[in-house]
């Protein structure tokens, strides 16, 4: 097997092991019902994390994901009040995410500012805009929301593949296509691997950087649309801290935070691991949300240290 799939394999093994642990601890845990719900519950954050995967592979970081999710929901809810169809307002927000991301990429490349600080400003801006529009949750009452929630494909057993999970899988397929079967995708990996070399090899830097962050913006907006439909409301605090969950999912999925190495498919399993931990902890009523954060931190630590030594040996090999 090609060594680039090793981290992905490791992530899948961790996921399967966690699922098995759930099965040992609780009756009826290993079922398509739990699995279907797991996919649906975490669809929005995994979608956003898919966009982040590209940003991280390029050596950057995006901190404005959570705010984007909240902002998209708030705008959609308010447009629902004035009678817009959620598909129309959602589509508009996807375009917004695309344009917003492209602008972020332009600022990062043109002004040569660290992505971390630019997207931090984006975090403020979008979250603040949420508060300017609304302070409370606004329900989305359009019938489409119910139809969307009800739509599903039955899985063997009692489970269902919910509509949000379906959107997530389509988004994932599109991302895999972009990442691995287009020149643009290859350019992202090149920039993350070595920026200077990539420029010397003829990668169009500005265009690619804008494209990368446009993808990040688009996917986090899509995550926001799914979240709004899934919760049938727009809440200005929605998605708070989701940027961290997304980044952690990407890292758990085997993508190197130093850039250049990673697989989009890994992010799916990274996100599912996070979701699974939450599910396991929720199954046991006595545990609480604190565990989710701590276990998340421990996993993050382990993977980062692991990566550190992987990369270390990588460098040594190329230097020898």
């Amino acid at each position: 097997m090609n060594e680039k799939y090793l981290p992905l394999a490791a992530t899948i093994v961790v996921f399967v092991a966690l699922f098995a642990i759930g099965g040992i601890l609780y009756n009826n845990f290993v079922s398509t019902l739990v699995f279907g719900d797991l996919l649906a519950d975490n669809a929005f954050v995994i979608i956003a994390a898919i966009g982040t995967t590209f940003v991280i592979i390029s050596g950057g970081i995006d901190l404005s994901i959570g705010s984007m999710i909240g902002f998209v929901g708030v705008v959609m809810a308010n447009l629902d009040v004035v009678g817009w169809h959620p598909l129309v307002s959602g589509g508009m927000m996807l375009v917004f995410g695309l344009v917003y991301g492209a602008l972020v990429g332009l600022v990062i490349d043109f002004c040569d500012i660290q992505p971390f600080i630019v997207t931090l400003a984006g975090l403020f801006l979008l979250r603040g805009s949420c508060f300017m529009i609304n302070l409370d949750a606004v329900p989305i009452r359009h019938d489409f929301v119910q139809d969307f929630a009800a739509a599903s494909i039955p899985l063997p057993g009692e489970g269902e593949l919910h509509s949000s999970a379906i959107v997530m899988l389509i988004a994932l397929a599109a991302a895999i296509f972009i990442g691995h079967f287009t020149r643009f995708g290859a350019n992202i990996y090149a920039i993350g691997g070595d920026r200077t070399s990539a420029a010397l090899m003829g990668v169009p830097m500005r265009r690619t950087m804008m494209g990368i962050y446009a993808m990040g913006g688009f996917y986090s907006a899509l995550g926001g649309v799914i979240y709004a439909l899934y919760t049938s409301s727009g809440y200005p605090l929605a998605g708070t801290g989701n940027e961290l969950t997304a980044i952690a999912s990407v890292v758990l999925g085997g993508t190197l935070l130093t850039g250049g190495v990673g697989l989009v498919a890994g992010t799916l399993f990274g996100g599912l691991i996070f979701g699974l931990i939450a599910t396991l902890i929720n199954f046991n009523g006595s545990l609480n949300g604190a565990w989710i954060m701590i276990v998340g931190g421990v996993l993050l630590f382990l993977f980062i240290v692991l990566q550190r030594f992987l990369v270390g040996s990588f460098r040594l090999r190329s230097a020898a």
Partner: peptide, 26 residues
């Protein structure tokens, strides 16, 4: 000591720190 980029190294405590606080509350 481990030469991890500062953003990432401190992200670990950022993610888990508030959870640790909740645990201590218990």
């Amino acid at each position: 000591a481990l030469d991890i980029q500062p953003i990432i190294a401190t992200l670990i405590l950022m993610v888990s720190g508030r959870g640790i606080g909740l645990m201590i509350n218990l």
